[in-house]
Amino acid sequence: MKVKQYSIKVFEINIESQSSFLAFMDKNIIMLRHYLIYLKGEITPAIQEYLDTNDVTYTTHLNLRGNKEQQELILKQSDLKIIDEIVRSGQDIRVESDLLVLNRVNSGAKIYVEGNLIITGIVDGMLFCNGDFMLVHTSPKAMIVFNGVEIDGSLLQNKFNKIIFNGDEILVSPIEKEPKWA
């Protein structure tokens, strides 16, 4: 017998009406394809057909096993990696979780993140982020690839930017008031 273990993210969706559910799915299908969907409510034939044709991974039965206390514990063990030192040229950092960098990322350094990314220092190096959002201050020299799309440096204007992937488009918005991290 072969047993494999996966860590997955689950989206819980309550179906309130067929039309609102289908509208929601249509809008977010690109993102939702990467997750297991836990559906609550009535699955009408139209919904069933939508799920099948769009190859959505879903379940209607999910027992997370355990009381509330255990679930709170899981929330506290947040999946975040923190780097509290300067990332120097030649360093190649790969992180599967979310990442918080509390220093600079110098020219010649590369960071690959599967989750979300926040960097408090100035970025001169290369960033590859596949999460839902980034909060970074990049210099014009930096290269930013977010969910496979290279972000035009001129959009980033050498200041703190919030970069969000909302499912079908990438939104870049500068933070006018620079955050004070200390």
Partner: peptide, 8 residues
């Protein structure tokens, strides 16, 4: 950049 790498 080279110094940065050397420091690393």
């Amino acid at each position: 950049r080279d110094a940065d790498k050397a420091i690393g």
